[in-house]
Design a protein around this nucleic acid. Structure first.
Lengths: 200, 200
DNA sequence: CGTTGCATGTAAGGTGTTACATGATTAC
DNA sequence: GTAATCATGTAACACCTTACATGCAACG
């Protein structure tokens, strides 16, 4: 038996939550969710609230986190979680481990645009333009996260990763704009429709 | 009753598969998987093979695709799928529909780098450098997909979207390199360890 | 005194994966 | 003839979400 206790075969999500718990002394499940929304979301994923609760319960079972406050018996009372030495060791081991896991970009607007030949060029333009606006707002959110993190010590890695994520989302905006420029060149007869009267 | 037959509440994945079937007259499940690996993977996702089979069966149930070849009764014989008019209408409707669904970048290397403070700076450097190499290979794959698609007519949208995806993955490489440069600046004492002898 | 934010969960169900089993066809 | 590729699925399970239920605290 090796000494990696309960740390076997956890999904990346579990390590993400464990990772969040490394930045503060203790957090409620609710707090973890807020951290995920503010930071993790931009380069990994934002778990559902209920998922965070379930994941923390599992991590507690495995001894990777421990809770202060109400015991499991009393429902609906505040519970504050803290990472254990075992949890810290597990997440550190995971973080140092090289991976072949490919980066996934799940981009439902790009997927729609990919099917552009099925719809009016104008509809494609609309959804991509909307996406550009949304992606710009996302970049502003990242900037706010960076601004907050920069003021804190011991956040140099998170800040560096948020900057990395920022570049990716900037490229998304640039790519979307280049796509729109392409669209204008390849469908000039359709796109100006809003300005010019329809041909008889 | 509206006439949107069996097209209710399908996940984006189902539309992705339906979309692939719009590009060719007919395809086997195996072919669909290959298309997904070559194209979809770079801006959306690559489904497991078994998933493609299950999804095609569901789409057939709903009348959005139809199969030629062996009937459902005979197992393990070749089945070729084709999109139906209803399927084409459903995917066209979906593609034109604006969405607020945020783009997800699921980047397990960035997640590890985010936790850099838990491990040796050298370990962080190694996994990020490895990722850069992998991301560069990914860009080459995208280039090959673009080269193939460019020779085909009616692939202008897929080509434009692949270029968009290419920008995103290029930004990933640039972001990773900037991260590494940051790392050298903030941890100069640790990083050159490989070249210089350890201090006594 | 009502709304917003904090706070915790359960139940049910859909999505997606891995592991496994099986066989036909093509190319060397 | 045998290896690789084509080709099809099932079973079991893990992951994650939505919908729902509950209640306290602070602010206006």
């Amino acid at each position: 038996m090796s000494d990696d206790a309960g740390a076997r075969d956890l999904p990346a999500t579990a390590y993400a939550i464990l990772g969040i718990l490394c930045f503060e002394r203790e957090l409620t499940a609710y707090d973890v969710k807020k951290w995920a929304d503010a930071s993790l979301r931009h380069f990994y994923w934002a778990p559902a609230t209920s998922h965070v609760y379930r994941e923390l319960a599992r991590l507690e079972d495995r001894g990777l986190v421990e809770a202060r406050g109400a015991s499991t018996a009393e429902p609906r009372t505040k519970r504050v979680y803290r990472i254990t030495p075992g949890g810290r060791a597990a997440v550190a081991r995971w973080a140092a481990e090289p991976t072949e896991e490919p980066t996934v970009v799940k981009h439902s607007v790009a997927l729609r645009a990919w099917l552009g030949h099925l719809v009016l060029a104008d509809d494609v333009r609309i959804i991509v333009e909307q996406h550009v606006a949304q992606a710009r707002r996302r970049i502003e959110e990242i900037d706010r996260s960076i601004a907050v993190a920069e003021t804190l010590p011991a956040m140099t890695y998170p800040v560096a990763v948020l900057r990395w994520a920022r570049r990716i989302h900037e490229a998304d905006v640039e790519g979307a704009e280049a796509f729109l420029a392409d669209l204008v060149r390849s469908a000039p007869a359709i796109l100006p429709a809003a300005d010019s009267p329809p041909a008889p």
